[in-house]
Structures are given as structure tokens and as C-alpha cells.
């Protein structure tokens, strides 16, 4: 019972866009589809939506090939936003709902409901090009869900939203999940992924680099993060005092900070040994924390670039792909 992406291959001439893309999204989940620009996310989404045919591989939803399913199965929020600028919000959304077979009066009711929920009820009769960017994005979101799709696929739903509107959008996500919908979205905001998603995949160069439940992905990273803050009591050299930890037992100093330092340590190393080494030097420890690496760190480690940077800036190969079965 899932959306299954099964070994997709897609070439555009000499360019291999998808090179065995393979993952599954459980029904009712909020799923993060992560990757740098150009990693193959949009191509995968277009194949699921039957806008492109794969060269190899299949996509199925609840066991049925996606290209046999009605279009209203899917709600799609494209990466590039666009609406008819001269049409009013209501006319426009009722038009899109109509294309999915939603009858006019039903569509009108649903649209008004959602405008209310997204805190822009007065936008209904305004022309789209009179709205702010954030509000246009909310309208675009409604366009993706106005026909009550089973699966909602969103490309960067949070980009360009201020914190207040981001929060409103998150509420909308949870509302959709509460209604039993499956949500797949891509984003470069890793904190949002950590806050919302049960499972993720990180893709690079047309294939999955790592995937599974967020917790497992973090565990599988082979690293842990240690944060140490000293009880400084008039020390003058500040954070530099712990600079010696860089390289100690394979640890890497990833964030030298004023209040605390952060180390990335291989899984095999016992964090307690590091704590002991610090104490043995006569320092007093005010804070010691062992944590999983953040998704952002895992992303950078696996893909070689920050989320949001284009893929062609990759300097080091990301190593052998690894998939955690979900």
C-alpha cells in the first residue's frame, strides 16, 4: 500500500536524468524528497504524473501503474509557480477544479473553505496579480488540493514564505495528513523536513543516496555529533581552547562557537572517551550532548553540496550510494 518508484531510468539524449531511481512512500505519510537542484526530482515527479515516460522502470500507486490512474489522484504544486494573472482567485481555482471533474458549486465551497483556513478569505474576488507573492503561493497550494487528491506532490512548497505563512502552510500539511492524504514534498529547508517528515530519501544524480525513516537515516550516517560547552570561569582563549579536539580519535570540529563547539565523530568512537579526555586536561564541562547529525549535515555529507546549491558545484564524489530499506 504505497507509492512505489521502481528502478526508473530516464535519459535526455546523452544526459542520464534518472539512473535507477528507486524508493517507496507509505500511504498516509509525509515524505521528504530531497536532493540538490538537478538531482532528478522533477523528472521523477513528472513520470509519476504521466507527463513523461520512463525509459525503464515503473511507478505504481496502491499496486496500479500510475499512468492508468485518473489525474485527480494527484495534486501537484510545481516548483515554478504560475497562475492566470488576470483571472480572479475564485474563478481560477474553480476552473482548475473543473478540469479535475469537480462540479462548480462544490468547487466554490471548497475554495472558500481553504481561503478561510489559509487566512486569505478576502482574496476570492481579487485578481491574482494583485496578491502578494506569499498569498499567490497559498492560492497555488489550493489549486493543488481543490479536487481532494489522494496524493499531494509538492515541489518546494515553503520557498518564498515568511515564517508566519510557513507555519500556516505546515498546519495545512497536517490537516491534509489528518484526512488520510499522502504528502510528498521536496525542499531545501532541512529543519522543515525534520519537523514534518516521517521518512525521506536523499537523491543525487538520478538515484537514491540514502533513504528511510528519518531516525534510521541519521543512524545510518556512520557519524554522531557531540556538543561540548566548558564552564569557562574567566578563561581568555574562549572556544579556541578546544581546538585540539579537531583530529582527536577521528573527530572533526564542525562548528567552533562562542558558547559551545560541535564535533562530528565516527560511530566507532566512544563519546565518553572524548569527555574523559577533556576532563583529564583539567577543564570543567558545563554541557555535554550526544546527538544524531542533522539532516543538513547528512545531506552535505552524502551529496557534497548544501541543499539548494546546484549539483554541478559538487567537488567530491559522494561515495557509494546506500539505501536503507524502509
Amino acid at each position: 500500500m504505497a507509492l512505489v518508484i521502481d528502478r526508473l531510468v530516464k535519459r535526455f539524449g546523452p544526459v542520464v536524468a534518472l539512473d535507477g531511481m528507486d524508493f517507496r512512500v507509505e500511504r498516509g505519510a509525509i515524505f521528504g524528497f530531497l536532493g540538490a537542484n538537478g538531482a532528478g526530482k522533477t523528472t521523477t515527479i513528472r513520470i509519476v504524473l504521466d507527463l513523461l515516460k520512463p525509459d525503464e522502470g515503473t511507478t505504481t500507486w496502491l499496486g496500479r501503474p500510475t499512468d492508468e490512474l485518473p489525474r485527480r489522484t494527484w495534486g501537484y504544486l510545481p516548483e515554478e509557480r504560475g497562475l492566470y494573472p488576470r483571472m480572479t482567485v475564485l474563478d481560477q481555482l474553480v476552473f482548475f477544479a473543473g478540469l479535475y471533474g469537480v462540479e462548480r458549486s462544490n468547487a466554490t465551497r471548497t475554495v472558500r473553505e481553504w481561503l478561510e483556513r489559509l487566512r486569505i478569505p478576502s482574496a476570492a474576488d481579487r485578481r491574482t496579480d494583485e496578491l502578494s507573492k506569499g498569498n499567490q503561493q497559498k492560492v497555488q497550494f489550493i489549486a493543488a488540493i481543490v479536487h481532494d487528491p489522494e496524493v499531494l506532490i509538492m515541489d518546494e512548497p515553503f520557498s518564498g514564505l515568511d515564517p508566519v505563512n510557513s507555519a500556516i502552510m505546515r498546519e495545512a500539511f497536517l490537516e491534509m495528513r489528518g484526512r488520510g492524504k499522502t504528502l510528498v514534498f521536496s525542499t531545501h529547508q532541512m529543519e522543515t523536513v525534520e519537523a514534518l517528515c516521517e521518512s525521506i530519501v536523499i537523491v543525487d544524480r538520478g538515484r537514491v543516496v540514502v533513504g528511510g525513516a528519518v531516525r534510521e537515516v541519521k543512524r545510518a550516517s556512520g557519524r554522531q555529533v557531540i556538543r561540548i560547552a566548558l564552564d569557562e570561569d574567566g578563561r581568555a582563549d574562549g572556544p579556541d581552547h578546544l581546538a585540539w579536539l579537531d583530529g582527536f580519535q577521528g573527530a572533526r570540529l564542525t562548528r567552533p562557537g562562542a558558547d559551545y563547539v560541535e564535533l562530528t565523530v565516527p560511530r566507532g568512537v566512544d563519546p565518553q572517551a572524548i569527555l574523559r579526555a577533556v576532563l583529564d586536561r583539567g577543564d570543567r564541562v558545563a554541557r555535554f550532548e550526544i546527538a544524531d547529525p542533522s539532516l543538513e549535515e547528512i545531506f552535505i555529507e552524502r551529496v557534497g553540496v548544501r541543499p539548494g546549491d546546484p549539483d554541478d558545484l559538487v567537488l567530491t564524489p559522494s561515495g557509494t550510494p546506500e539505501t536503507v530499506p524502509s
Binding site: 489525474r71 510545481p78 515554478e80 489549486a143
Partner: peptide
């Protein structure tokens, strides 16, 4: 429709022939 990108919505809602 293409330059305003509304096409991306259209093409996922209706077939090219429609």
C-alpha cells in the same frame, strides 16, 4: 501560459489534446 508557468498546473490537470 508557458511563460507565466501556469502551464505546469494545466498540463497535470488536463491532457495535451484537451
Amino acid at each position: 501560459e508557458k511563460s507565466t508557468r501556469v502551464m505546469e498546473l494545466l498540463i497535470s490537470a488536463a491532457t495535451p489534446r484537451e
